[in-house]
């Protein structure tokens, strides 16, 4: 109990996380999830994947770096070898149709061109953020998705949530916006304050201390 109290501030406690129940297949669905890497990086690094299921289908097509392309039955709860999945955003209906088409078109091409570097990037998280921006999917990856803010030697633009701006170099960078709040980046690690939903952004665990991102 004492230890639990001690670690609480650092554990990235998230209030009201999204349920990992799969939505019905009466509409096309696109979901953005992340899972933690294996030990000992399990608390500081996460990996993203997009799960896409067309209307009426049962299986999910997964888009990610280092895998994907296969059909999975439940990438919400199990996506080997990643653990502790978090659902960050779900798109349904027409939005999901557009997103599915975009991911199908853009993801393989982006991955084929990827000159992968585990740290600081470009890596699987760079792919996740790039797809969010390319396909106009308004969401953001958690701060423990190290590499999400990789823009090369220097880069910037509108954030993936679409209500802010960011400027990045491999050493330092920042993101500022109406929903994004203020996020400082140092060597790929993120710290800051998310304005909506409110949370403190930490480079540990689920990446935030406060309300779940939605």
């Amino acid at each position: 109990m004492k230890r639990a109290l001690l670690v609480l501030p650092f554990a990235g406690c998230v209030i009201l996380p999204r349920s990992l129940e799969q939505p019905a297949n009466d509409q096309t669905t696109v979901a953005l999830l992340t899972g933690s890497l294996g030990a000992p990086l399990n608390d500081i690094a996460r990996h993203p994947w997009f799960a896409v299921r067309r209307k009426g289908e049962i299986g999910w097509v997964v888009y990610e770096v280092g895998g994907g392309g296969a059909t999975e039955s439940d990438p919400f709860r199990k996506h080997y070898p990643y653990e502790n999945p978090i659902l960050h955003e779900v798109w349904r209906g027409d939005d999901a149709e557009k997103a599915a088409d975009c991911l199908e078109r853009e993801a393989p091409e982006w991955i084929a061109k990827l000159d992968y570097r585990f740290y600081p990037g470009p890596n699987s998280n760079t792919f996740g953020d790039a797809m969010l921006r390319t396909c106009d999917l308004r969401a953001s990856l958690p701060s423990t998705s190290v590499g999400k803010d990789w823009r090369g030697l220097i880069g910037g633009g509108v954030t993936s949530e679409g209500t802010g701006l960011q400027l990045e170099t491999p050493i330092v960078g920042f993101k500022i916006g109406l929903k994004e709040g203020v996020e400082l980046h140092f060597l790929g690690l993120s710290i800051g304050v998310d304005l909506w939903p409110p949370a403190i952004i930490l480079p540990l665990g689920p990446g935030r201390l406060g309300f779940a991102d939605r």
Binding site: R3, L6, G38, A39, P40, N42, D43, I44
Partner: peptide, 19 residues
């Protein structure tokens, strides 16, 4: 630090919270 020690694939590593 109270945490875990790992030896996966022969690489000694560990993590945990400390006071």
């Amino acid at each position: 630090r109270i945490g875990r020690y790992y030896d996966d694939y022969g690489f000694p590593s560990g993590n945990g919270y400390f006071v």
